[in-house]
Design a binder for these strands. Structure first.
Lengths: 165, 165
DNA sequence: GACGAGTGGTTGCAAATCACAAGCGGAAGG
DNA sequence: CCTTCCGCTTGTGATTTGCAACCACTCGTC
């Protein structure tokens, strides 16, 4: 990916594409945001698309460099936790719209569809709540938490769908 | 791009990425949606990112095959018009969110930013109006038109920004 | 203090894709 | 005819992808 160079244009849509418009960046971010994966091995082992380790390493490095993730700095050989930054947290509405689109126009499994349905039904209010939750988990925000959390609700719906199908 | 094969997963977000998650597909669609380009040469000549003709040809072909565009069928050597399909028109909210993100988190030129700002301010109601407009232009919908059209408003704002800067 | 499991990666390689420039066959107008 | 416009196609080298194997390091256990 050539996004290391200067941007092709100064269009905001193009800027977004250059930041995460490839076949893997959004997949990695999706797994961190919705799947709560924080470590390299977690991301690789649980990837439903089966990401290769070199691609994962490359994307994580690039996302850190471009300000979408931060990496806990550890000595080599130790677990390093990745955290979302505020720009990455603000991708939640993008994920919601992508999910709504995929839901409508492509065949998807009923289990994996559930999260997108809920996110669509909840609308911007739910997205905001989820973003606040991510700020708490990833940025140490002290905003008051609600129970059950959005992620708990999303996962409960996902599990219900996998069992009933 | 390997999107011709079977999908990597049945996740709606992944489905969206496989449909248009590369460095050029959304750029082409953006120019058709917001720039009102309908012909190959228009798309190539006016591309601010400078798309190469083989890439453009490949993307158009793929977008037609995947149901996002239709191509007027003409004899070779004649102008062929491309039209958006309903799934492509429903990308408007995706574009709006991508624009909002790029606006906030990446440097963009004030002129090119204007459309994204307007789309954000207008919200879902404006998106719907714009989608109806696209249905009229691309699908022959007979829904009543409003004046001035959303595109006229977006372009007027864009021109005002280019002159004042 | 050697061992084995777990950590986050790197390396090599073949295949696919990208980006750039040039050229091509048909159609339309004069 | 000749020119211009039309949608591409064809080379070419450079980059990226996907796959599998391998690596250096740390930590807990014996």
């Amino acid at each position: 990916m050539g996004e290391v160079n200067e941007p092709r244009s100064e269009c905001p849509i193009n800027a977004a594409i250059e930041a995460f418009g490839d076949r893997w960046s959004l997949i990695v971010l999706r797994d961190i945001v919705f799947g709560d994966r924080r470590y390299f091995r977690e991301l690789q082992a649980n990837s439903i698309e089966g990401i290769a380790s070199n691609i994962l390493a490359d994307r994580l490095k690039r996302l850190v460099k471009s300000g979408l993730l931060t990496r806990e700095d550890t000595r080599p050989g130790q677990r390093a936790r990745y955290s979302l930054t505020e720009p990455a947290i603000q991708l939640v509405p993008v994920f919601a719209q992508l999910g709504s689109w995929g839901l409508r126009h492509r065949p998807t499994s009923s289990a994996l569809r559930v999260r997108a349905v809920l996110l669509e039904q909840g609308g911007p209010a739910l997205w905001q709540e989820f973003m606040d939750e991510l700020r708490r988990e990833h940025l140490g925000s002290k905003l008051p938490a609600r129970s059950p959390s959005v992620r708990e609700r999303l996962n409960a719906a996902y599990l219900a769908a996998t069992n009933s199908s």
